[in-house]
Simulated assay, not measured.
Amino acid sequence: MSESFARLSPAVSMGIEEEFLLIDRELMLPATPTVHQSNALQDIRPGQGATSQEWLSCQVEHASAVLQDAPAATTALLRFRQNLASVAEGFGLIAAPIGTAPTIAEFGAAVSNDPRYRQMTDLAPGIAADQYINGMHVHVSVPDPETGIRALNGIRRWLPLLTALGANSPFWRGLDSGFASWRSIHYRRWMVNGVPPAFRDFTDYENRIDALVNSDVVADRGGISWLARLSQLHPTIEIRACDVQLQVLDAVVLATLIRALVCAAIDQPSRVQPEPELLDVAHWQAAKFGLSSRLLDPFTGAPVLADVVVWQAFNQAWPYLVEFGDEELVRSGLELFLAQGTGATRQRKMAQLSGLTGVINHSGGAIADTERPPLASSHRPDPVRY
């Protein structure tokens, strides 16, 4: 870790956006917009975050305030989720932190009145009608646009792993999709998605963005849905690879890991970029398997066991995790992911026990759960083993 980063690190903040599905408790289907019409959700503002309606009337999004550390992130997410669960319960609804809707009504939910959502629905109604997907976006502050480009170029190789770790959307229209993150596959249907290209500098980035927006199908910069991009509203890089997480602990572990990987990308830029087609197939593979099979090594491109890539990322992030005081949190969180699986694994286990109804009810109960189940094994790797 360089001396320049050590001086900068106290100013590296993060923000977390989470999207949730509102499900009718009796019908076990995505809910009507009644709760939105009451303004009850918009009144939830713990920690000065912001709450808004997402793409569909059965969705809600929470954007946290600026967060300086993991304890603050845990408190902010937990308070919002507790409030959301309480408000939803009052309307006979379940607030579900799952990446896709396991069951969908024959007649879909209404699209929100946001002009941009309406415009995109008019452009691609067949895709928009299926937008029952919920993600978690992590913002990490950057001091200037050129540093943001360095972060973008450096985080590219880790985006497939983040997709795998954050996989929490196996079910779709009453069936197992065969993917750990069906949300990731669904999202690939939009006009600009996937791993972003490598950029020479911020001017190159702006020129490419302008060219896309000048096309007939990208209405504005918000339509550029790369897995990582520079925020158009905040001085941040936005990482969009993860599904919304079942539990607060999962979300905070991923967010703090992402912050450390962004810091590593800024502080130790790589001279060699992975080929775009390799990252594209690595993302698909990560969405398919999560952590249950092999992933592509982000440096060699060879298929390796998932835990090898997980601890490669931990090793890359380790000096910055130590700097922020997040080392033990992320180490134990990654151990938990490897020992007991991602949210997709846990959803599938619940489906075996009690079907999709059980999945929905379980997710509603997990939304504000802070208890960690015990580790199935004790796997404590040397942080410099890879």
Rank of each mutant, 00 (worst) to 15 (best):
I133D: 00
S86T: 14
A128F: 12
L22M: 06
Q312W: 08
A76K: 00
P197S: 05
L56H: 03
F202R: 07
A211R: 15
P373V: 12
T103G: 04
A264W: 12
I185C: 13
V66H: 03
A282G: 07
V12A: 03
D307I: 04
S181E: 06
R173Q: 14
A317L: 07
G365L: 11
H379R: 12
L254R: 02
L336T: 06
G365S: 13
V60M: 04
D267I: 06
M136E: 05
D250H: 12
R81F: 06
I224F: 06
E89H: 15
N113K: 06
P319G: 12
F179E: 00
S332M: 10
M136P: 00
V87I: 15
R380S: 11
L29K: 03
G154E: 02
Q119I: 13
P115Q: 02
P276H: 08
N207I: 07
A85S: 14
C242H: 07
S225A: 15
F20H: 02
S293H: 15
R188Y: 09
S112Y: 06
L246F: 09
L29W: 02
M350E: 15
H379D: 14
T34A: 14
C58E: 00
V192L: 09
A306L: 09
R221A: 08
T103F: 02
I149D: 01
S225D: 15
P125C: 10
P10Y: 06
I367H: 00
L56D: 03
L159R: 03
Q232R: 11
S292N: 13
R385F: 08
A255L: 04
A70L: 06
S13C: 08
L161H: 01
S9L: 11
L261K: 02
A264T: 09
L279H: 05
V192T: 11
S293A: 15
S225Y: 12
V384Q: 11
D267C: 11
A368D: 07
L56C: 11
G174A: 07
N315E: 14
L338S: 01
E146V: 10
G15E: 02
S181C: 13
M191Q: 10
E26C: 06
L21K: 03
S112F: 10
I209Y: 05
P143D: 15
A228H: 04
L249E: 11
T203M: 11
L78D: 01
S215Q: 14
A376C: 09
D130G: 12
H62G: 03
A286K: 05
A260Y: 02
W158C: 08
N39Q: 14
S332G: 06
V330Y: 02
G174R: 04
E54D: 12
